Simulated scan of single mutants.
Amino acid sequence: MESQPSDINEAIEASGEVTLEQATNKAKEETDSLLNVRLDIAVTGETGSGKSSLVNALRGLKDSDEDAAPVGVTETTTEPTPYQHPTMPNVTLWDLPGIGSSNFKAKTYLKNVKFDRYDFFLIVSSGRFRENDIMLAKEIKKKKKVFYFVRSKTDLDVQFEKERKGIDKEETLSNIRRNSEEELKGIGNPKIFLVSSWDTSEFDFEKLIDTLESELPEHKQSALLQSVPVYSVAILERKVRMFQKAAWAVALASGAIAVAPVPGLSVSSDIAMVGSFFTSIYHSFGLDDKSLERLSERVNKPHLKSLKMSPLVEELIQMSSLRLGASALGVFLCSLVPVAGSAAAAAISFTTTRTVLLKGLDALAEEARKVLREAGLE
């Protein structure tokens, strides 16, 4: 390892592997995981529990948005219905029929909804958890899959208790938690999250995402974190750290391509990877026009709609293309020299691409922080 350029040694160390070949393979896997890994989330519960609204909230949508899952006081979902994330098509939320409805009895429910396709289940209730919820959780547990209980419409409960009974927010939340734990005592130690699909910055929504991220398989974690809406500075900074960690993998995958002595191959591949990386960040940080429009309406600050971040992404990609193109000749000439030249080409490509990625990430993160300040969500 000592004979290799120091940047390559650094990349190997960042990967946690021993050899350049092992590090490169891991980089390719992590890059693919960042951009392409599938995540299928099942949202279930009794009819009228708020399943569809939760599906919309997890996709960063309002119930009234054009692509939102339909909601209503009666059962609007008659079969498992997939809803792709609006900016991450590899993430799908499945709005499942209400458990206990005439076509989906609790005992045969999992078979009917094709249980194996989902990574985990969110069991939703807008009031007390009932026998069907418990039966479903036990069946999921038998099949060794993960489930979480979500108490929806918590904002309405808090408002009702305050207006009608004079009970403050913290006491109401404490009562709901205690009652929910009592209702689900047959499950063991159930994980219960109190949420509002209308305002994901309130209550346990962030705690739910934290728990899901920590308990999902590693290759699924980035898909979840990228897909959740930016509702606080804390979630934004977690996304920033995720992309910072991923930058080495994208850069090293680029370095592996640079070893091949084909004119233009490295720089064209680098530009494609950089473009995909920046586009993923742009959507994940909620800087696209639709996300800014939804944020503007939620916090009642119309001027946020006029912010246009797409020119920044285009500028970053253009500047990156110039920077990567400037290093292309050195990469190509090094790649012509057997062994040592290949390592040098990989080092040049790795260093240049990583620098470009991190600088672009910093620029987009700063814009996202400004947006949150403007929205009053610091």
Score class of each variant (00 low, 15 high):
Q4H: 12
A11M: 11
L20H: 07
K26S: 13
K28S: 13
K28H: 13
G48L: 09
S53C: 12
L58N: 05
G60S: 08
L61I: 03
P70F: 05
V71R: 05
G72E: 12
V73D: 07
T77V: 14
I99E: 04
I99D: 03
N103K: 15
Y118E: 07
F121V: 10
L122T: 06
I123P: 15
I123M: 08
R128L: 08
N132W: 02
I140R: 08
K144E: 15
K153S: 04
D155Q: 08
L156N: 09
E163G: 01
D168G: 05
G188C: 14
P190R: 01
K191P: 12
S197T: 10
E202T: 07
L212A: 09
E215K: 15
L216A: 06
P217V: 11
L236K: 02
M242F: 08
F243D: 00
F243E: 03
G255H: 01
P261Y: 07
V274G: 00
D288H: 05
L292S: 07
E293L: 10
V299T: 02
V299S: 01
K301H: 07
P302Y: 01
L304E: 06
L312Y: 04
Q318F: 06
M319V: 00
L324D: 11
G325H: 09
G325L: 11
L333Y: 04
L333E: 03
A343P: 00
A347S: 15
L361R: 01
D362F: 03
E367N: 10
R373I: 06
E374T: 02
G376I: 09
L377Q: 04
